[in-house]
Design a protein around this nucleic acid. Structure first.
Lengths: 213, 213, 213, 213
DNA sequence: TATGAATGAGCATTCATTCAT
DNA sequence: GATGAATGAATGCTCATTCAT
């Protein structure tokens, strides 16, 4: 009764399911994604999905974790030492914005999480350390800028970080409605460049303002 | 034998369905909302929903239109004449942000639209004039500021508007994930005030920068 | 409170509903026809349909009666006196077959009735006198043919009539499946002519056979 | 603890669904048949129907195929060699007519197909070879009859076949309306025998006519 | 006579999930 | 580890019909 060609590839099956799930959840959200579409796209059957991830929601949390892990990895690899503080700010901003632009599906997932009031995020406690290294990095840049007399003092690094990320987030996440209302496509490189310049100038104008006041 | 609830009330039925739909679509998105939950919440039956709005998608578009109409109405009623340009900017920003803060469900709807690549928004042509009056208002403030020597010249009003809205949008729309990652609750008044101050200062620092350069 | 232009046309409304119903019932059958499609096609509303015909089934019976009435009218107007018996047979057959060919929807209705085991037909007792005049006509032709020595004797007029009608009925009613299986389109004039010739020859060969046997 | 009904029985489940579908579709037509009635009659649930047949229409096509297959099988098993040409014709006719009489639901299905203008039949390419063997058989009988000097020459086998089938088809398919109008029940054996005799005599009278002309 | 509004039961179909092998 | 078969509760939507004016 032995089969000659039994395809047993547990790692591969698991990863194929996860990849397919990322695609479907980011495209259609938690409610819109279909279990059987994920299984088909992963070239396996629905049963395996339950075998590895227990439930649709379990798979969704796994997707969330995978996405945040990728994001953290990228942010963690930033090296801004040796740059002027203002250049460091510019580079940090440009790097984060580029990531957002290159991973728009990621933002769909985050929006979906906010729709659910971060219910699933809370289940996965190991995500929450993700952000701190970048904020720490930003804090040290701000401190360096202040001590070198270039930046104003008293800037809250978290608020500043949130503002910086939000600038990039908004124009990527809302690119479709923005185009519908403004007629301007913020995926176009030239529109992107000019608004990014505006954003960087704004961040630095704020930081630099102190000495002249 | 008098009935408390009027049996024949087309206007009322239509509005009750629309109100219930706003609630459900903003809570669960297009895919997540349930037709029968909407009908129950509207104290009518599913059939009437189709009678007035043809399909679930038709109802969704009607919700979209209603929400944008409310937003436009609010923005259109702003009177900033007689204010100093910088105060006008501050008031405009505060007013828009307050609206976003007070209508977080509205942002869920917009996010949902972006998930669908604004497919449904495009169906409703009458939405797209919504934005222009506010941009026109902003443009005139910027021009006044420039001609009075307070603001730098050459600021693109659309990019500036998008940036301004985005600042308020991001912290409302992403308040749950932000709390999960930064530990800071941007619905709290004191956190809100300090980041709003940061944002206004940033906008004005950018506009004012010219003369000192 | 008087309206200036109230369109009151009871006869017209009734007839428009009936016409629309003939179209829908013959096209889709009793189960397949839609009440609202009938109302729309009749340029009135569903309520009027119930006002005039009580129910969908009532309307169906009315359609049935109207169709049989038209059929009877046509058959009743045949004048075959003065023709040779064999020519009379030929003319009778050709005339009936032509009617079937020109009113294929009529056959759909009859098939539908047989699907329902003539349940609705039975409700309408006044239909059943329809057939007898034609059978009487046929009987007299057969008798004349026999007495003139051209036709065999002992031919049952009902069986003969059923056979004659069936020849035309089958190729019209089954024209679609016949084309699918035989590749031959019995709506084409030339195919129609040759099989009609076959049928007439067959009918007459049978009648004529006696004297030579 | 032993179960009487086997829980896992793909072949059986599929066949039970198909059998139930034959019953429902032949009774009520495509539009009139109910999916949940089919599932109940098959002692399974609606989901399995979609599992095996994709859609209601898919199941309808499967029923169509099954019915035509049975018909073809029966016709294919006829052995008329060794019979006189006229006896062969008689046997062929009687056999086909008997099949139609014994499977009146089959005719409902065919009528339904004609109502739909054979739309579903066309989807199933493998049905269309069904007819040819019988026509070939008939052609050889006709040729044998001609070469033996018993039958006239130049008889088109397809037209002859269509006529022969139509004779039996019409009185079975229209038995209810025929009874309503003629008062004669063509399911009764004695009525059936006399009209069948008429039909066979007619077919043979036509074929035999030549030598006397 | 005419019509827009309202209804509840039923429709085909799909869902996430579990069972048995 | 892997898979085809099975399930019941829902899902969006349509049906013929009736109410109120």
């Amino acid at each position: 009764m032995s089969e000659l060609r039994v395809k047993r590839d547990p790692e591969g099956t698991r990863r194929r399911i996860l990849d397919a799930a990322v695609e479907q959840f980011t495209k259609f959200g938690l409610a819109g994604a279909r279990v059987d579409a994920i299984a088909t796209a992963a070239a396996t059957n629905e049963r395996m999905l339950y075998y590895y991830f227990v439930s649709k929601e379990g798979l969704y949390v796994a997707v969330l974790e995978a996405m945040y892990a990728r994001f953290a990895e990228r942010e963690g690899s930033l090296d801004l030492s040796g740059l002027q503080p203002s250049d460091a700010i510019r580079n940090l901003a440009m790097s984060i914005w580029a990531y957002l632009r290159e991973n728009p599906q990621w933002l769909n997932l985050v929006n979906n999480e906010n729709l659910h009031e971060a219910r699933y995020l809370e289940r996965s406690r190991r995500l929450c350390e993700t952000i701190s290294p970048v904020v720490d990095l930003l804090r040290s840049i701000l401190e360096r800028g202040t001590s070198e007399g270039q930046f104003r003092s008293g800037v809250d690094p978290i608020d500043f970080y949130v503002t910086l990320v939000g600038m990039g987030y908004y124009i990527v996440s809302n690119r479709f409605t923005l185009e519908a209302f403004t007629g301007r496509n913020y995926s176009d490189l030239c529109n992107l460049e000019s608004i990014s310049t505006l954003h960087v100038d704004m961040l630095l104008a704020y930081l630099r303002r102190d000495p002249t006041a």
